[in-house]
């Protein structure tokens, strides 16, 4: 192996080891430590005054799974994990409900429009996430545009309370993650051959039957991929629940943030992170397998 090949592999490798793997190991280590009023605020820390070996042995002896036991006993964390899962599932379904018709419409549009439509879906994705979430505060608040509109049309006489509820969180997630749902569904529907639908109709299918057995069937890989792409990041979402959600909206990303910045309990924050990752491994592995299957099917 020559030098340039070594450098090519080595530089990004070492970079990722130091700035991705090692930090994660540190999180794991701290999740086994105990909270302490000191700097840094946890114990034990590596103390090498009696030599490295003694220090490491002491460190090892001080580690335990106390924080994890604490997490399972305290209601707050249980509920936060469950409510994050619930919010992520419902938000994913809602995004699918909103995104599928858009993707279907794009795929049915004349080919010369498609590039522009695609551009229109991607453009908001490049604009600031924070700003897109912020935009909804002015729309959903009690004096906001939505309530002004609803009261002007006479649909409601009282302002609807939406901001600072779970509904605002759902709207925020659907809005910001919509491109992640639309793009994969669009790319699997784009390949849809119109003659397949005609064949189904010729063979006696109703329009709805043909739509169900041809279009939906072909869209399935895109639907699955899109759902994972929305579900995985929303599970650990922080910005949306903290800006649009209320004090009752429990999401684990927010709990972790508060545990770290407000309570300054680093070991518990680290344990929350470790469990969140363990929960995430399931959908990530499923997603990987799905992608792998698609790649093989494409060959």
């Amino acid at each position: 192996m020559n030098f340039s090949r070594k450098a090519l592999i080595g530089i990004p490798y070492v970079w990722l080891l130091v700035l991705f793997l090692v930090p994660f190991l540190i999180v794991f280590k701290i999740s086994l430590s105990d909270y302490a009023i000191s700097i840094p605020p946890y114990t034990p820390t590596l103390d090498t005054t009696n030599g490295w070996w003694a220090g490491i042995r002491e460190l090892w002896a001080g580690w335990d799974f106390e924080n994890f036991v604490f997490l399972t006993q305290d209601d707050l964390y249980w509920k936060a994990y469950l409510s994050s899962l619930k919010i992520a599932v419902i938000a994913t379904l809602l995004t699918l409900l909103v995104g599928f018709p858009i993707a279907y419409g794009m795929a049915s549009a004349p080919p010369e429009w498609r590039t522009s439509l695609l551009m229109l879906v991607i453009l908001p994705f490049w604009t600031s996430f924070l700003i897109r979430v912020y935009a909804w505060i002015g729309i959903l608040s009690n004096e906001g545009f939505l309530n002004q509109f609803l009261m002007w049309t006479g649909i409601t006489s009282e302002p609807l309370v939406i901001l600072n509820t779970d509904w605002a969180v759902y709207i925020g997630i659907v809005y910001t993650y919509l491109p992640f749902m639309v793009l994969p569904i669009y790319s699997s529907l784009e390949k849809l051959d119109e003659s397949l639908i005609e064949a189904a109709l010729d063979l006696g299918c109703t329009r709805i039957g043909a739509f169900w057995s041809v279009t939906i069937h072909l869209a399935k890989p895109g639907v699955i991929a899109g759902s994972f792409l929305v579900f995985i990041p929303t599970l650990g979402e922080f910005v949306i629940p903290s800006l649009l959600g209320g004090s009752k909206t429990l999401m684990i990303g927010k709990v972790l943030w508060e545990e770290f910045f407000s309570n300054r309990d680093w070991p518990v924050a680290a344990a929350v992170a470790v469990i969140l990752l363990m929960i995430l491994i399931v959908p990530i592995v499923l997603f990987q397998q799905n992608q792998q299957k698609q790649r093989e099917a494409a060959k």
Binding site: L19, I26, L256, A273, L276, L277
Partner: peptide, 16 residues
């Protein structure tokens, strides 16, 4: 890192 929640990436780097 593409699927890692930002709160975890941030926390782990800070601790590093």
């Amino acid at each position: 890192p593409l699927v890692m929640p930002e709160v975890i990436t941030g926390l782990s780097l800070l601790l590093l």
